[in-house]
Design a protein around this nucleic acid. Sequence first.
DNA 1: CGACAAAAATGAAACGTTACATGAAATGGA
DNA 2: TCCATTTCATGTAACGTTTCATTTTTGTCG
Lengths: 331, 331
Amino acid sequence: MKKENSAPTMKDVAKEAGVALGTVSKVVNGLPVGDSYRIRVEKAIQKLNYQVNSYAQGLKANRTYTVALLIPNTVDPFYAALTYHINMALLKRKYRMLLCATDFDPKQEQEYISMAQQNKVDGIIGLTYNPALIVAENTPFIAIDRSMGPGIPCVACDNFAGGQLAAEKLADLGCKNVAFLRTGSALINEPNKRKAGFETGCLSRGLSYEMKILDDVDSYEEFEMFLSEHMENGKLAFDGIFCVTDRLACLVLKMLHKLGQRVPEDVQLIGFDGIRAFGTLDYHCSTIVQPVPEIAEMCVELLLRENMLMKPPLVCLPVTYAYGGTTLETQ
Amino acid sequence: MKKENSAPTMKDVAKEAGVALGTVSKVVNGLPVGDSYRIRVEKAIQKLNYQVNSYAQGLKANRTYTVALLIPNTVDPFYAALTYHINMALLKRKYRMLLCATDFDPKQEQEYISMAQQNKVDGIIGLTYNPALIVAENTPFIAIDRSMGPGIPCVACDNFAGGQLAAEKLADLGCKNVAFLRTGSALINEPNKRKAGFETGCLSRGLSYEMKILDDVDSYEEFEMFLSEHMENGKLAFDGIFCVTDRLACLVLKMLHKLGQRVPEDVQLIGFDGIRAFGTLDYHCSTIVQPVPEIAEMCVELLLRENMLMKPPLVCLPVTYAYGGTTLETQ
DNA sequence: CGACAAAAATGAAACGTTACATGAAATGGA
DNA sequence: TCCATTTCATGTAACGTTTCATTTTTGTCG
C-alpha cells in the first residue's frame, strides 16, 4: 500500500515503469539508457508527476547548488539592485539563492553564516558589517566592498578611481572649492578609498577641498551644521560637493534647498552608486555609477570558480559618470 | 582514517565523545540525556565544530523549514519592501527563504515552482503574473494580490476601500472633476478593485470622473495624450488625479510638469502603495499606503498555519492615507 | 543480596538519491 | 555454432540524520 499524501520517489517510478532504481536515476540525469527503457521511465515520470528530491541529492553529493546572500536589506535601492542581479546571475547557472537580510546586525550576520553552513550551501556572498565575522574554512566566501583577509576575495567597484573621477568632473564643471561628505561604517573598507581618490583628484586638478567625515552615523544634523558653518552672506563656501553615496546626496540636496542653495546653479552635487529613485523632477545631481550587474556576475563567477588559486584577493570593476544618475529601471 | 576536508558528522562526534549516534542526536535536539553524557557530547561538538546537516534532516523529516518567495524583482520599491518584510517574518520563525525573482516571466514563474518543489520547500508565497500557473497539490501556496482559485488563499490590502479612500480624500481637498489612471496586468485581479472602489467613492461624494485604463502596458505616451486632450487654454479639465500606483503617479507628475500644471496648486495627485523614493523635494502627491509589514506577516502566518480549514480564501488588510507618501526608510 | 521496574543508552533501519560492482544479454567474428 | 567482447540493466552500499525497538544500567524494595 502506497502512502497517499507524499510525493512520488524514484522507487515509485521504477515500480511503475517496471525497471530498476538505477535506471530511473540515469534517465533523470540524462545518462545513456536504452531507448525502450527510457521511454517507459519517462512515461512513468509523467504519470506520477515525479520530481527529484534535491535534499536527497544534496545529501548524497554533498553539493546543493545553493548560494546564500548576506545583505543588510533589500529595500535600499543599491542593495535591491545587487540582490536582483546576483539572483539572476545564479539563476543563469541553475543555482538557487538563500536570501539572508541581516539588517546591519553583526549577530544576525554570524547566525546566518551558521545557518548557511548547516544548509550546506556551496558558497556565500556577503556584504557584511561585522568586523569579527568568522567564516567557515570549508565554505567559499566572496565579500562585497570589504577586504576580509587572505583567502576571501573582495569584489568592489574601483572606488579610488570613482573618487578621482568625481573630483575631475567637479573641476570640469568649473568648481574651485569643494567638499567631501561621508557617513557610514569605516569597516566597509573598500568604499573608503573614495576619499583617497577624491583627494588625489583634487590635488591633481588644483581644487581646494574640505572633508566632513562621520563614522557609523547616518544623521542629518551634523552635516547640516557643517554646511551652515560654511555659509557667508547667503553664499556657500563650496561650489561643489561630493557625497559618498547617492543616498547622502539626496539628503544633502534637501539641506541645500533649506539653505537657499540651488543645484546645479549655485553648487554642483555629485553622489556615488548610480542609484536614483524613479521619476523625480528636481534631482540634478550627478553620480558615479557602480556597475552593479557586473559586480553581481563577478561575485557569482568567482564563488563558483573551481580553481582556488585563480581567486584574486581584490577585483575592482570600472565606474562611470552619469549626469542625473541612472534610474532604477535601467539598472 | 577520517576524511580530511569534509565537515564532521554526528558519527564523528559520537566517536569523539565515546557515545552512541542516537545520544548525539538527542543532545543536538535537546531531548533528555544523562548529564555526564550531555557534557561529553557538547565538548565533542565544540571541539570538532560540528554543525548539523539540514539536508540530512530535511530528507529524514520531509520538512525543510524553507519557504520560496516568487516575486518579479527586488528592485521595484514595493516588491523590495515585501521581500524584506517576508524575509524578516520568516526569520522570526526560524524559517529560511529561497528568493525567486521571476522578472514577470510566466515561464520562469512555472520553473521556479518546480524548483521549489524539488527543494521540498514547506510552502510558497507568490506574487505572480502567469494566468495559467500550476501549483502543486502538496505544497501550500499563498498568493499576494491575486485570487488563484479554491484552496489558495490570497493576501492583499483592502484595494476597494483604498480606491474609495482616494476618492474621498480628493473630495475633501475640494476636487470636482477627477480622473483615474491605470496600467498593469488585469491578471493581478485584486488591485483592480481600486477602480471599483474609486467609482463608488466618486459617486457617493458627487465627483464627476473619467477613467483611462491601459492593460498590460506601462507606457508614458497614451497617458500623456489623454492628459493633453483634456487641456483647454492651459488649464486641465481635472482638479484631481488618482493613479493606480505610486510609480505611475511619479510618471504622471512629470507629465503634469511638462503641461505646466503644478501639484498640488493646480491639480491634486494621489497614488497607491505608500512607497516613495527617499529624499526628493518635489513630491507632493498623496498616497494610499499598503500595510506591507502586516501583509508579509499575514502571508507567513497563513502559509505556516497547520489547520488547512483555517485558511480563508481572501484576507484584506486595511490601508491608510498619507500625504506625500511614507519614505522607504520608514517602511 | 537478589529480583524487578524504571530509566536511559544503544544501534539498526529508513528517508531518496547516486555510484559502482555485478551479472545478463546482445553483438560480432571465427 | 560458440566464444569473446561489448553494452547495458540491476541492485546494493553510502550520504547524515531521526526514530524506535532493544539492551544495558541504575535504583528500589522485599
